[in-house]
Amino acid sequence: MGRWEPNAQERLTRAALELFAERGYDSTTVAEIADRAGLTKRTFFRHFADKREVLFRGEEVLSRLISDGIAGAPASATPLHAVGAGLEAAATAFGPERREWSRQRQAVIADNRELRERELLKSTALTAAMADALRERGVPDLTADLAAEIGYLAFRTSYARWIEPADEQDFAELTRRTLKELREALGAVG
């Protein structure tokens, strides 16, 4: 592949994931990623701050999709139903073409403490985005925080189900199913 070809960010992402799987995250350098993609280190750093960010690109887009979905929920929606609307809006980022990449990504993250910590920061940011979007709807602070925590639990559970090889449901359906199960569990507790 020539250095002038388009889709540099996608090429770098694919190359990084391949190398992380082959050699491990810690044993892979930015120079190797760029070389595998047929690009320069300089091009790599135009797209990513460091090699870790290859695995976490799109975090801001995901937060925005969820926040916009919550904001667009009907005014009569309960906080959990608004969160459900946010998670369904985020499903557009989880098309079938991303499933295998996401499986590989999660395997790399699971094998590295630093990446697991970064994943926790991502979870905190997504939860905060949900809570903020709920507050914008006039939901009281504590209720917004609790609904956002439940929302992140639903997101995390749905994502884990979505990357399972045996589960081929789309992400939106999985979020609906997971939220239904969480509501049932909460009803059983109350």
Score class of each variant (00 low, 15 high):
Gly187Ile: 07
Thr92Arg: 09
Pro96Ala: 14
Thr29Gly: 08
Glu114Tyr: 10
Glu32His: 04
Lys122Gln: 10
Val54Pro: 01
Gln169Met: 07
Glu5Asn: 15
Phe155Leu: 05
Ala144Met: 06
Arg176Asp: 06
Thr40Met: 09
Glu184Val: 13
Trp162Ala: 10
Arg103Gln: 14
Ala147Ser: 13
Arg177Met: 10
Leu179Glu: 05
Ala148Asp: 07
Thr92Ser: 14
Gly58Asn: 08
Thr43Glu: 07
Glu119Val: 02
Ile33Ser: 14
Ala166Ser: 11
Leu65Val: 05
Phe171Cys: 08
Asp35Lys: 15
Thr43Ser: 10
Gly58Gln: 05
Arg99Pro: 07
Phe45Gly: 09
Met130Ala: 02
Leu17Pro: 14
Gly58Tyr: 04
Val189Thr: 08
Ala31Trp: 07
Leu174Thr: 10
Asp68Ile: 01
Glu100Arg: 02
Asn7Tyr: 14
Gln169Arg: 11
Arg176Gly: 06
Ile66Met: 01
Leu65Tyr: 07
Ala73Met: 01
Arg3Tyr: 09
Phe171Ile: 03
Gly95Met: 03
Arg98Asn: 06
Ile150Ser: 05
Ser27Glu: 13
Ala148Asn: 01
Ala128Lys: 05
Tyr152Arg: 04
Arg137Glu: 02
Glu59Leu: 08
Ile70Cys: 00
Leu120Arg: 03
Ile33Gly: 15
Arg105Ala: 09
Ala77Arg: 03
Leu126Pro: 03
Gly72Asp: 11
Ala89Arg: 13
Thr28Pro: 12
Thr13Trp: 13
Glu184Thr: 10
Tyr159Ile: 02
Asn7Lys: 13
Glu18Phe: 12
Phe155Ala: 03
Leu87Cys: 04
Leu174Asn: 12
Leu62Tyr: 05
Thr78Gln: 00
Arg64Ile: 06
Leu134Phe: 00
Glu100Pro: 07
Arg3Met: 15
Ala172Phe: 09
Val61Thr: 15
Arg183Leu: 05
Leu65Ile: 02
Ala131Tyr: 01
Glu53Ala: 08
Asp145Glu: 10
Asp141Gly: 11
Leu153Cys: 03
Gly86Ala: 00
Arg3Thr: 13
Tyr152Glu: 08
Leu179Tyr: 06
Gln9Asn: 09
Asn112Pro: 11
Arg135Met: 05
Arg64Asn: 13
Ala77Tyr: 08
Ala110Arg: 05
Thr78Cys: 01
Pro79Gly: 01
Glu173Met: 11
Gly58Arg: 01
Glu164Lys: 12
Tyr152Gly: 06
Lys41Ile: 03
Ala110Val: 07
Leu120Gln: 10
Trp4Ser: 12
Arg183Thr: 06
Gly190Leu: 14
Arg23Trp: 12
Thr157Tyr: 04
Val189Gly: 08
Phe44Glu: 06
Gln9Ile: 12
Ile33His: 10
Val54Glu: 04
Val139Tyr: 02
Ala125Ser: 09
Leu126His: 08
Phe94Ser: 05
Leu12Gly: 11
Val139Pro: 05
Phe45Gln: 06
Glu173Leu: 14
Glu100Gly: 10
Phe45Thr: 03
Thr28Val: 08
Tyr159Met: 07
Gly69His: 04
Leu174Glu: 11
Ile70Gly: 00
Arg113Glu: 13
Tyr152Ser: 08
